[in-house]
Nucleic acid binder design. Structure first.
Lengths: 106, 106
DNA sequence: GCAATCGATAACTCGTTGGCTATTGATAAA
DNA sequence: TTTATCAATAGCCAACGAGTTATCGATTGC
């Protein structure tokens, strides 16, 4: 399985798709029709984006009669947070090493 | 100007480009030649990626004779962190509102 | 039962983008 | 001064991806 942040970056890179996810975070549970009304693209396009978001684990779907409700899965963002923390960690390590070096030079 | 996280998501979505950035975070200052040696793609491809990273503010370049050194600009990740925090905030707000509602129903 | 709505899928188009090779400008080395 | 190296640019191509319209299966309402 590829590294978990890989799919997240790819999925969230598209503005339309990210807007859909943001809306689900803001306002919670939404039907496809409700999301389509505000997405600025066609219903099939929205369905496709939701499929990609679901594949990335960023949303869940719940079927209720002929409506499908989607909701954000906030925990799925964890690998993204981990990745940024890791980058910051690398940075800090190198800084610490430099500090040590300078200390040893005294 | 577009929202600052927009360009970051787009820039970091490409695996090759992200690997270059990661390497700069891990190991600090690198020449284009050094980065090319490990990138698995041609030197022009690396230069193009570095151009995109620079445009996004994620790297800085420093010229030294005929070599060009690049280094990571860690602060540029801030809008990404802000965005994830904002998503978490929306989530929390909705939870709080639900809590309030339940409390008022007592 | 029949018409209407919801949402997913199919099939296609088109712009974007990541890759390449070739080349150029600039600096260092011989 | 001539040759070699470094990095950026130009020009091209193939693949991918986001959008469209058309359609279909499923559910609900008349």
């Amino acid at each position: 399985m590829p590294q978990p942040h890989e799919i997240l970056f790819k999925t969230l890179a598209d503005p339309t798709r990210r807007a859909i996810f943001e809306r689900l975070c803001r306002d919670g549970d939404q039907t496809v029709a409700a999301l389509t009304a505000r997405a600025g693209v066609s219903q099939p396009a929205v369905s496709k984006h939701l499929g990609v978001l679901k594949q990335a684990g960023l949303v869940r779907d719940r079927h209720e009669g002929r409506n499908t409700h989607y909701s954000a899965e906030l925990g799925a963002l964890a690998p993204l947070i981990d990745w940024t923390n890791q980058m910051a960690g690398f940075w800090q390590s190198r800084f610490d090493n430099l500090e040590d070096l300078l200390k040893r030079m005294d």
